[in-house]
Design a protein around this nucleic acid. Structure first.
Lengths: 129, 129
DNA sequence: CATAGAAATGATAATCATTCCTATTTTATG
DNA sequence: CATAAAATAGGAATGATTATCATTTCTATG
């Protein structure tokens, strides 16, 4: 494993959020200042293939990455885009039983307005960026 | 509703697949030859806002659109990309109960290898494009 | 019917996340 | 140390989707 790949994985494991490739770049550059965005993307893809990292594809925003591997789903705020972990609502086995086919993978995303954004909506002010 | 918007909706309602914007363009052009791709995208967005059409965001391919509105989830072949309808595995109400929050929307996608592609994999040949 | 204002269109340019390319650097190995 | 293989940095390319804008099409009204 190259130095940059190790650092990218380490960054993802230490953080409790679900950062984008750009955010990972910024964090990792504290340790490898010359790190390139392409390298981040390449290694994230490798790490996903090795099942050491999970990609969270976003519908209208850059994808997020997740270093937490226990099965879980995601709750996404439609307002601020923040991603929360929630316990898995299905198992692969249950899906296979219900569908009668082998299942390779599945993806569940629930959308809501997070408490912060709900509060802001009430008084009519958003947060300043 | 403009002529092109009506035709786009009609195309989506008549078809049993889950076409991309490009495919919708081709089908709709049989009736409006000068139709522009931008117009297709603009109207698809409007139709989604009006809840007359559902967008199926795809992870590594152009998004699909669905004119079938009964709640259902999607089963996607990792090989050929074909999208199948499956009965909903959750209800919004069940999710809200489980999560203890208001839920705006949710998205469930299950990945598998469809029977066709499984067969092709066996003999080691894919279909000729 | 004429027509003014509004809304939608077609064509094309712009955006932006992600991937690709390549010359260079790093790493592993005998 | 020499060398081949692998990975990198940096920048260009890709491709789906949006934005822009001049022109066309509706629509309502007198």
């Amino acid at each position: 494993m190259s130095r940059q790949k190790e650092i990218i994985l380490d960054v993802l494991r230490k953080v409790r959020t679900h950062p984008t490739a750009d955010e990972i770049l910024l964090m990792a550059r504290r340790r490898v200042p010359a790190l390139a965005l392409g390298t981040v993307y390449r290694n994230l893809k490798l790490l996903c293939d090795e099942k050491k990292v999970r990609r969270i594809p976003m519908e209208d925003a850059p994808d997020r990455y997740d270093g937490f591997l226990e099965p879980h789903d995601h709750l996404v705020c439609l307002d601020c885009g923040k991603v929360y972990d929630i316990p898995s609502l299905q198992t692969k086995e249950a899906l296979e039983a219900k569908l009668g086919t082998e299942v390779r993978d599945y993806e569940m995303k629930v959308y809501f307005i997070c408490p912060n954004c709900r509060r802001e909506d009430k008084d009519g002010f958003g947060s300043p960026d």
